[in-house]
Computed example of a mutant assay.
Amino acid sequence: MTGTDDGWVRSWGASPQAAHDGLGSFDGHPPLADVTLRQVVRISGGGGRVRVRFTNEFGTTPLTIGAARVGLAEPGGGVRAGSERVLTFSGAPGVTVPAGAPVLSDPVDLCLPALAKLSISLHVPGRVETCTCHDPALETGWAIPGDAVAAPALPGDAVPLPVRALLSAVELVPDVPARTVVVVGDSRVDGAGSTPGANRSWPELLAERGVAVHVSNQGISGNRMLNNGIGPAVLARFDRDVLATPGLGYVVLSVGGNDIGISFAPRDASLADFLAMFPGAPVTVDDVIAGYRQLVGRARERGVKVYATTIAPYGGSEIYSLEGESARRAVNEWIRTGGAFDAVLDFDAVWRDPDHPSRIREDFHAGDHLHGNDAGYRALADSVDLSLFG
Rank of each mutant, 00 (worst) to 15 (best):
T4W: 12
D5R: 09
D6K: 11
W8Y: 03
L23W: 08
V35S: 09
T36P: 06
R38E: 00
R38M: 00
S44Q: 03
G46R: 06
G48F: 06
R51N: 07
R53M: 12
F58A: 00
G59A: 09
G59W: 13
G66I: 08
A68P: 04
R69L: 09
G71W: 01
G78C: 09
R80T: 13
E84M: 11
A92D: 07
A99L: 06
A101S: 14
V103W: 03
D106N: 11
P107M: 09
P113K: 09
P113F: 11
P113R: 14
K117T: 14
L118N: 02
S121K: 12
L122Q: 10
H123A: 07
P125V: 07
G126A: 08
V128Y: 08
A137R: 13
W142H: 12
A151Y: 10
A151W: 08
A151R: 07
P155V: 12
L161T: 02
V173L: 14
D175L: 11
T180H: 05
V182E: 00
G191L: 05
T195A: 11
P196Y: 11
G197F: 05
G197Y: 03
A198V: 05
N199I: 00
P203Q: 13
E204V: 01
E204W: 11
E204G: 08
L205Q: 15
A212R: 14
N217Y: 06
Q218I: 02
G219W: 12
N223Q: 06
N223G: 04
G229F: 11
G231S: 08
A233H: 02
A236I: 00
T245F: 08
G256E: 04
G257P: 00
I262E: 02
P266K: 04
A272H: 12
D273V: 10
F274G: 00
L275C: 03
A276K: 14
M277P: 00
F278I: 11
V288R: 09
I289G: 01
L295P: 00
R302D: 13
K305P: 01
V306L: 04
Y307Q: 05
Y314D: 04
S317L: 10
S317C: 15
E318T: 14
I319R: 12
Y320E: 15
G324M: 03
S326V: 08
R328G: 03
R329T: 10
N332K: 07
I335E: 00
G338C: 03
A340R: 11
D342S: 09
F347V: 13
W351M: 15
W351R: 02
P357S: 11
A366M: 01
L370G: 01
L370F: 13
H371E: 02
G372H: 11
D374H: 05
R378I: 04
D385P: 01
